[in-house]
Amino acid sequence: MSPPRRNPTGNRTYPIGSARASREDRVLAAARWAVIAAAVAVTAGPLLYGVLLSLKPFAAAAADPLDLFPTPGEATFEAYPTAILEFGLGRNMLTSLQVALATAFLAVACSILGAYAAVRLRFFGRSTVNVVFLGVYLLPGIVLAVPLFVLLNRISLTGTLIGLVLVYIAQTVPVALYMLRGYLQAIPSSVEEAAMIDGCGRLALIRRVVLPMALPGVAATALYVFMIAWNEYLFALLFLVGDRERWTVSLGIAQLTEFSVPTTVLMAGSIAITIPVVAGFLLAQRLLVTGLTAGAEKG
């Protein structure tokens, strides 16, 4: 073991390959793999548990909670049709699909215009608008829920999906705008200027030049908004709980837990509503990640 020497700043340092350095490296390497293993177990574990439980017959699941893996003979998909047909989850999924698609389309349509203006145009009130959006993003949803509940009650939009879509748009526009702004900034403005010289108007410019170039980013943003709308629970609970016909998937599953529904069916329902979201995320993962973390590099 070589003795520690002092560098000009007076700190003790150790030559590369010294016993101290390699012991430190060994400990860190072990810790690193432990962290990775723990992270995988903790993140994938509950999901895997849900899938396995949804494939077991209820009697076997209730008999021994620790016997996690269904034997090949007893594995069954029965719980899925039960959840989707018998407990109305299919209808809920159709409702959620409509709400989430409408929200994604309208929120992205609004925010692409706004994001273009914020990135390319100088106009009066630009910075004020940015601050307002940031503020909205930080306002507690539960606090806004009180007057929105009252307002929608008053104009009898509670129990309708239109009210829910409007609220979702307002909730998702700030994050959509933030993501789209990042994607648009990455596009060179010279192409747009060339198009304008050729006599292209502003809206045509956005539709024919900006939109095609930013399409992957726009798709990723739409997917993210779709996921938020699909997963949302609070406003669906407040506006729709009285109207079983219009429950969304989140509300459907949450209400099922109130009744004595077999756990296996609950798990099947949870997994069924998770699959579209996880599949979409995995498809667009790279784009979504760059869009979400656009501001992080500077921080």
Binding site: L113, G114, A118, L121, R122, G125, L144, P147, L166, A170
Partner: peptide
């Protein structure tokens, strides 16, 4: 200036009506 304001107006209207006004 005009284009900028027109383009952000849909977003601003929705946010005003469903977030700022409720607050």
């Amino acid at each position: 200036d005009l284009h900028g304001r027109v383009l952000v107006s849909p977003t601003v209207i929705v946010v005003l009506a469903f977030a700022v006004l409720p607050f």
